[in-house]
Design a protein around this nucleic acid. Structure first.
Length: 939
RNA sequence: GCCCGCGUGGCGGAAUUGGCAGACGCGCUAGAUUCAGGUUCUAGUGACUAACAUCGUACAGGUUCAAAUCCUGUCGCGGGCACCA
């Protein structure tokens, strides 16, 4: 490819404009309070030369955001620029349309690969990270994105993570007040009267914080040497690397995201995300309505508290059909309720399968627990066919009918959901039915299925039967009725349950934000935690040269003994997960250099849309956020959670961070398979850029298909858009001047860039007014490109640009203004080429050149977006298809203003139509004005 | 298993939301330019036909004057969740 002739000298044009944009800071976004230099094109466009920007004099904001990359050692792949190109096109389009566009980029640079590399080589993660960022920055800049580089951020920069730590302190110093349904400062926490002493109150307070310490079992990954959040564990393996994980109790920091479950769910209705993405978040939050029901164990000797077992059910209406109970094997009451011996007549199959462990309930339960603990999560879920469990020997009373029902333990009941115990209604729950059939437990129908449907195994709404006072009621009424009854009896209450769990927030790693927390010995010997004052931020990680965990299994930070030990206290040695930095980066872009606050309120209110605007409707939050689906639950849920906390505490002004969110689709290899090194089908953007240039690369990424769709890469396809750019070039450039340019380049390659000056406009380009058909072609293009950009339909917008060029290249006279307008339409897609040709066709430059005064190259970026005139699009005559019985038979050409009655007559008289109607009965004539005529006839 | 989304030429994909199926691009065919290859330009390109006609948007039905588009069922592909009571 490199041996063939270039379509146009993109290798000279692209660096030229990238440098120009850098020097001019062309895409610098101005916040209220900043002074706009007289020479900046933004100020020139908006009449703000050398003025201080304010909320009132700035145009409306448009915040278009990319998911910032993790700068890996592998460099950029073609997936990154897909979303980045889409947002860049939008940014350039909105800038032209008169918005103040914020389009930033940065680096999500804490993370495991750099740390693992450090463990292997001793190379400090800081060094690796900086090298990788340099590569990423170079690659991203070579694509010509219109980022405001003065707002570049790096999550590993102490000036950045200082504020990540500060936000953690906000969480630490807050509690969630259920009465106000929001976070409040911990000082407002009311204490129960019986808590008098400060140590007692401290324990209570620490249990209420949004950031708290928990000893619950967590997922531990040996291969990664750290714990992981629930969301990072998939099918019993780590999301990163696919290593096995095990459940292990450890003392860990948690964030109380569950307090926000309902608001995270409800507020989805206020934002413009795809249905599938909202659905994924809804599934993850997993709201279900039902009731708590208390069962009493038949063990009169036990204290009352140990005889009560509460279950959660979404079907309280089936309570009369509960023929047994199941507790999770780890349920805390199991040991208390076990009788010493099996009840008489216990079937042998109920005592468990473990040989030698069936003599007593204790032995059977212990054996089953050992078996369940040994099963990995994958085995539990994949081998879901065979239900297992053992009878505990205990019985409970069904509160509805007083029946004595056996209590089992089984691993199909999860300790972590609901109350860790269920009432089993085998007739109307698939899992309970499987279990009941396996162990021959009673099955009682309590819901009548409609029609002839079998009632056993029926899990939908029906009519209650065999159910005492709710018999005959439809399911929704029965639920309400029995829940009211349970409340009256003091046996239960309505309850909403969520699958969402609190967020495990600590990791045993080096390359992350240290917690601004110290531990002190308590009066009872138990250590307690305290926050560092804000004045001690940023808390830097200690210098280390060994990044492995300590030999006794503590995190790497514990190696730094000088750092670790303070007077009377020890530092927290865990670090924050990678998600921490990405939870709020979109806020830091608003005011990236601020060392007094994470973000100045005036900037926050302007860019997040709370300041309003006199002449425009402003979007609350980020206007457009584009990124991959892989962040559908993790990053996007965490970020919404932090944002809501900051909102409650008055630090941000909108309840949601990202108003409109779009997931870009995956780009597959040329073989239609996912790109991967092992398949050898990875496309490197650097190679494409070298052969075709950045503009062709951008254009192709967008021309491939709809942004959100998964689609295969084709390097042949790149040549198609590259040829299109070549045609644009030849539309504007005089061929003989190009020959001269090439000769000069060949003679003097070192000064190739200067030789661009030799290029002259195509002789067919004249300063004449376009004719009606040229205007129609142009305005059809303006209309299509504008509407398509408004709906993110980049592929069809590009096709409209191609249609224009295919037409215009055939014109004998190419009106100058028409081509200039076209270049404005082209520039968001192919900015370098558009800038170069604009400069060439710039009449002011021509005249200034005559005076010998050098003219600074200006930019196309701030020219007004053209508007289309609908009047110019109206065709004088229309071609109307004529159908007979829905089949196309002829086309007739008629003036656009023909009345429907005249269209009818013309259709009937058409050459190919009249013979078809002979001898038939005309039943009906349908005229769709301007569209088509359908004649309905019968023989 | 459950929940979303999608099935259109040889390929990527269009179709103003019920109104001319296949825009635009790739590929392919023929011609022009060229010593030649490449580039560029011109014309053609759903299937079957000499042509007229006929058929054609995964498959089978249905609604409608009219269906890629709406409804029912089936099959296939992709994604998410997965014993969540």
């Amino acid at each position: 490819m490199s041996s063939t002739r270039r379509q146009y000298p993109f290798h000279l044009i692209e660096p030229k404009w990238q440098q120009q944009w850098d020097v001019q800071a062309t895409f610098r976004a101005w916040s209220p309070g900043e002074r706009i230099p007289a020479a900046h094109p933004f100020g020139q466009r908006h009449g703000l030369r050398d003025e201080t920007a304010t909320t009132l004099n700035l145009p409306p904001k448009f915040y278009v955001l990319d998911m910032f990359p993790y700068p890996s050692g592998a460099g950029l792949h073609v997936g990154h620029p897909e979303g980045y190109t889409a947002t860049d096109i939008l940014a350039r389009y909105r800038r032209a349309a008169g918005f103040n566009v914020l389009h930033p980029i940065g680096w999500d640079a804490f993370g495991l690969p750099a740390e693992q590399y450090a463990v292997k080589t001793g190379q400090h993660p800081r060094v690796t990270t900086e090298a990788n960022i340099t590569t990423f920055r170079r690659q991203i800049k070579s694509l010509g994105f219109s980022y405001d580089w003065q707002r570049e951020i790096d999550t590993t920069d102490p000036r950045y993570f200082r504020w990540t730590q500060w936000i953690f302190l906000q969480l630490y110093h807050s509690w969630f007040n259920p009465a106000s349904n929001r976070a409040e400062p911990i000082e407002s926490l009311p204490y129960p009267a019986e808590l008098k002493s400060e140590p007692e109150r401290r324990v209570y307070r620490d249990g209420k914080r949004l950031a708290y310490v928990s000893d619950a079992p967590v997922w531990w990954c040996d291969a990664l040497g750290t714990v992981l959040a629930n969301e990072e564990v998939i099918d019993g393996k780590s999301e990163v690397g696919g290593f096995p994980v095990v459940r292990r109790p450890m003392r860990q920091w948690m964030l109380r995201i569950t307090a926000y479950a309902e608001r995270l769910l409800q507020d989805l209705q206020t934002i413009d995300w795809s249905d599938s993405l909202k659905e994924m978040q809804r599934n993850w939050i997993g709201r279900s309505e039902g009731a708590d029901v208390t069962f009493t164990i038949d063990a009169p000797g036990l204290p009352a508290a140990e005889r009560q077992v509460t279950v959660f059910t979404t079907r309280p209406d089936t309570l009369f059909g509960a023929t047994y109970m199941v507790l999770a094997p780890e349920h805390r009451l199991v040991d208390a309720i076990l009788p010493a011996t099996w009840p008489a007549n216990t079937p042998v199959t109920w005592k468990g399968q473990q040989p030698g462990a069936t003599q007593s309930p204790q032995a059977a339960v212990a054996a089953y627990r050992a078996y369940a603990a040994a099963r990995s999560d994958r085995e539990r879920t994949d081998l879901a066919k065979e239900k297992t469990g053992v009878f505990t020997g205990a019985y409970a009373f069904n509160p509805a009918n007083g029946e004595r029902i056996p209590v089992w333990i089984a691993d199909y009941v999860l300790l972590s959901y609901g109350t860790g115990a269920i009432m089993a209604v085998p007739a109307h729950d698939t899992r309970d039915l499987e279990f009941a059939r396996a162990f021959n437990l009673p099955i009682r129908t309590v819901v009548q299925a409609p029609g002839n449907t079998e009632s056993i195994g029926f899990v939908d709404d029906g009519i209650s039967v065999n159910s005492g006072f709710i018999t005959g009621l439809p399911t929704p009424d029965a639920k309400r009725n029995i829940t009211d009854w349970l409340v009256q009896q003091g046996l239960g209450q309505a309850r909403v349950n969520y699958k969402l769990r609190d967020w495990l927030f600590s990791r045993q790693r080096y390359w992350g934000e240290p917690f601004p927390i110290v531990w002190k010995p308590g009066p009872d010997g138990e250590p307690f935690h305290e926050a560092l004052p804000e004045s001690e931020l940023p808390l830097l990680p200690p210098p280390l040269d060994d990044f492995k965990p300590t030999n006794d299994g503590r995190p790497p930070l514990a190696r730094a003994t000088d750092w670790l030990n303070l007077a009377g206290a020890q530092r927290e040695t865990n670090t924050m997960p990678q998600w921490a930095g990405s939870c709020w980066y979109y806020l830091r872009y608003l005011d990236p250099a601020n060392d007094q606050a994470f973000c100045r309120p005036a900037a926050e209110r302007y860019w997040m849309g709370s300041a309003g605007h006199p002449n425009a409707r402003i979007t609350p939050g980020v206007d457009l956020y584009v990124g991959g689906t892989e962040h559908a639950v993790l990053h996007l849920l965490y970020a919404r959670f932090w944002h809501k906390v900051l909102f409650d505490l008055g630090h941000v002004s909108t309840p949601e961070p990202f108003y409109k969110l779009v997931n870009q689709g995956l780009i597959l290899g040329e073989d239609g398979q996912k790109m991967s090194k092992s398949r050898g089908n990875v496309i490197n953007p650097d190679d494409i850029l070298k052969d075709y240039g950045a503009d062709a690369f951008r254009l192709y990424e967008m021309f491939l298909g709809p942004l959100e769709m998964t689609k295969p890469w084709s390097t042949r396809g790149v040549e198609g858009v590259y040829r299109f750019l070549g045609r644009v070039w030849r539309l504007c450039i005089d061929e003989s001047s190009e020959t001269e340019f090439e000769q000069r380049c060949a003679a003097n390659p070192d000064q190739a860039a200067q030789h661009l000056e030799a290029l002259r406009p195509h002789p067919a380009i004249q300063a004449t007014a376009p004719d009606a058909s040229q205007l129609r072609v142009l305005h059809a293009c303006i209309r299509k490109v504008t509407e398509d950009l408004d709906h993110l339909r980049f592929n069809t917008a590009i096709s409209a640009l191609m249609v224009f060029v295919n037409e215009a290249i055939a014109w004998d006279v190419r009106p100058l203004e028409t081509l200039r307008t076209f270049l404005v339409l082209l520039h968001p897609f192919a900015p370098h080429l558009a800038e170069e040709l604009w400069q060439l066709l710039d009449t002011q430059r021509e005249s200034a050149a005559g005076t010998g005064t050098p003219v600074a190259p200006n930019t196309i970026a701030y020219l007004p977006w053209p508007r289309f005139d609908p009047a110019l699009l109206v065709e004088e005559t229309l071609e109307i298809p004529v159908q007979v019985n829905g089949k196309l038979r002829d086309r007739i050409r008629l003036p656009a203003d023909t009345t429907p009655a005249q269209v009818e007559l013309a259709a009937l008289a058409a050459d190919k139509i009249a013979p078809l109607l002979r001898g038939k009965t005309l039943r009906k004539i349908i005229v769709v004005p301007g569209k088509l005529v359908n004649l309905v006839v019968s023989p």
